[in-house]
C-alpha cells in the first residue's frame, strides 16, 4: 500500500508563499479548468486555492516566535469527507491514497466541506464544484515532464526545502525518516482522521562548547610552544619553509 503525502517542516518554512503561487499557477492552468478568482486585482479579492500559508504568533512578547503554517488537504487515511459525498465524486485512490474530487460528478452541495475538520476544501464559485489539493496528480504521474519535475509544484517551488514529498507507508522513504527522526506529527489527532500529511516541529539547533575546547589543551609534546618566533621585520615562517 502506498500513501503519498507531504511533510511540512515548520522549522524551515519562512512563509514566503512560493508554494501558494506555484500551486495556483500549475493548477489553474491545467486541463481540469481554472481555479477561479473574484476581483483578483480589486478590493476584496477572493478565490479558490489548494494551499494557503497562514501565520501564527506563539508566546507572549518578548518571548514570541512567528510560525508560518502552510495548510492544504492532508489526504487523510480515513478521510471523513469521502463517505458523506452523495454522488461518489469525492474518493480516495486505492493505489496511492490521494483524495480527489471528480469535477464532472460533483453537484456542489458542499457537504464534504462540512465534513472536513481542517477546512481543506474550497468551492469554486464559478464552476460550482468542490476543489482541493490533488497532490499534483497530473505532475507526479506525468510522462512528458522531465523525471525531476514529477513532484508537486509546491515542493518544487519551496526555496528552503520545507516541503518533502513521498510515500509515508514505505519505512525507508525520505518522508518516513523525517517523520520518525524529527518528531513529525499529524493535525487534530483527536478526530481519528489519520492525516497522511505530517508537520515537523520547530527545533532548536545548538551545541555546547566549553572553554577548554577553545584552546588546544592536549599538546603532550609541547611542540606548539617551541616553534621559532621570527621578528616582525623577518619573513614569516610560511614564506621561508614548507614545514
Amino acid at each position: 500500500m502506498t500513501q503519498l503525502a507531504l511533510i511540512i517542516d515548520l522549522n524551515v518554512c519562512v512563509g514566503c508563499s512560493a508554494c501558494v503561487t506555484s500551486c495556483k499557477e500549475w493548477n489553474t492552468s491545467g486541463p481540469a479548468g481554472p481555479l477561479s478568482d473574484r476581483n483578483p486585482y480589486d478590493a476584496d479579492p477572493t478565490g479558490t486555492f489548494f494551499n494557503r500559508v497562514q501565520t501564527f504568533e506563539v508566546g507572549e512578547f518578548p518571548q514570541t516566535e512567528t510560525v508560518h503554517f502552510p495548510k492544504s488537504c492532508l489526504h487523510c487515511e480515513d478521510p471523513p469527507c469521502v463517505p458523506v459525498c452523495p454522488t461518489g465524486a469525492s474518493y480516495k485512490r486505492k493505489e496511492d491514497g490521494i483524495v480527489l474530487v471528480d469535477y464532472d460528478k460533483c453537484i456542489g452541495c458542499k457537504y464534504c466541506s462540512w465534513a472536513c475538520p481542517y477546512g481543506a476544501r474550497e468551492i469554486d464559485e464559478q464552476q460550482k464544484v468542490m476543489k482541493k489539493c490533488t497532490l499534483c496528480v497530473d505532475r507526479i504521474y506525468s510522462t512528458t515532464l522531465p523525471e525531476a519535475d514529477r513532484r508537486p509544484s509546491c515542493v518544487m517551488a519551496c526555496p528552503t526545502s520545507a516541503r518533502l514529498f513521498g510515500d509515508i507507508h514505505d519505512p525507508d522513504s525520505v518522508v518516513s525518516r523525517a517523520i520518525r527522526e524529527n518528531g513529525g506529527y499529524a493535525l487534530m489527532p483527536e478526530w481519528g482522521t489519520q492525516p497522511a500529511n505530517h508537520y515537523l516541529p520547530r527545533r532548536k539547533t545548538s551545541i555546547t562548547i566549553h572553554k577548554d575546547q577553545l584552546v588546544r589543551a592536549d599538546n603532550p609534546l609541547k611542540i606548539d610552544g617551541k616553534l621559532p618566533k621570527p621578528a616582525k621585520q623577518e619573513p614569516t615562517l610560511d614564506d621561508v619553509t614548507s614545514w
Partner: peptide
C-alpha cells in the same frame, strides 16, 4: 479541538496573525 491541536504547537498562548487570504475565502 483547540488552536494547539489545530497546528500542533503545545503553547498556551497562540495568536493567529494571517489566515492566508486578504479578502476572505470560502
Amino acid at each position: 479541538s483547540s488552536t494547539r491541536t489545530a497546528i500542533g504547537i503545545k503553547h498556551p498562548h497562540i495568536v493567529q496573525k494571517s489566515p492566508g487570504a486578504m479578502g476572505g475565502s470560502f
